[in-house]
Computed example of a mutant assay.
Amino acid sequence: MAYATLDELKGRLDWSLDAEELRIASAALDDASDLAATYGREWPEDTAPRLVKTLVLKSAARYLRNPNGYVQSRAGDETLQWSDIGRDAGTVYFTREEIRLLEELAGRKRGIASVAVSAWNTKPQAADAGGYVPVDYAGDPFPLFGDAVSPW
């Protein structure tokens, strides 16, 4: 299951692929698609968002440009160094921003959220209840906070 085709990947590269590179490119597309499904979710191929395809193509093309994971290139007295690759050098990978995009496309958001909690089989109190929680017995609600205006 690949979210992009080999022809689409060829369109992003500035050279023609030989037979060995075609084999590697096909595997890179499969790997990038598997990662996209892992970080996002498993979309059906024909209904995956366009951005998923774009990210898969970006990742596979990035790998094909540097399959050995070199972080430095030197020619004579000129040196070129890639500092953003890190431990992912030589692999198909997504950047942090790309992973965040895949998570958002899948409907997953990172972070802290607050969740309303109430006792089993009770109704939430009205908004003006001001810091009280319901009780199991027939009586007044229990004060959760000391002050209805400020909970602290």
Rank of each mutant, 00 (worst) to 15 (best):
P134M: 00
A25F: 05
A126P: 04
Q72V: 07
R110S: 14
A28N: 03
E42P: 07
G11W: 10
A32W: 01
W152Q: 14
V133F: 12
E8T: 03
L35I: 11
S83H: 03
F94L: 01
S83R: 06
G130N: 15
L9Y: 04
R23K: 13
E78Q: 10
G111W: 04
R100A: 12
D88L: 07
K109R: 14
E8D: 09
Q81T: 14
K10M: 06
T79G: 04
S150W: 12
L101G: 01
F94H: 03
R96F: 01
E97Y: 10
A27W: 02
A116T: 07
Q81S: 13
V133K: 09
D34V: 10
L55R: 05
P67Y: 04
Y3I: 06
Y132A: 12
W15M: 10
S59K: 01
Y93M: 07
G107Q: 07
D136C: 00
R12A: 05
E45Q: 12
M1I: 09
R87P: 04
R65K: 14
A19E: 14
Y70Q: 11
E20S: 14
S114I: 05
V133M: 12
T91L: 14
L35G: 13
A113P: 00
G130Y: 13
A25P: 00
P44T: 03
S59C: 09
N66P: 00
A119T: 06
G11C: 06
S16K: 15
V56M: 07
G69S: 02
V135I: 13
A148M: 13
L6A: 07
E45C: 06
R87D: 10
A27P: 01
L101R: 14
P67Q: 02
Y70D: 05
D88S: 11
Y70G: 06
A89Q: 07
A25Q: 02
P67R: 04
D128F: 11
R50Y: 13
T79P: 01
R108M: 04
L55H: 03
A2E: 12
P143E: 06
K10A: 08
P124G: 08
T47N: 06
S33F: 11
T91G: 05
V133P: 00
S59E: 03
R23P: 00
G146P: 04
D18Q: 00
N68P: 00
A27L: 12
D34C: 12
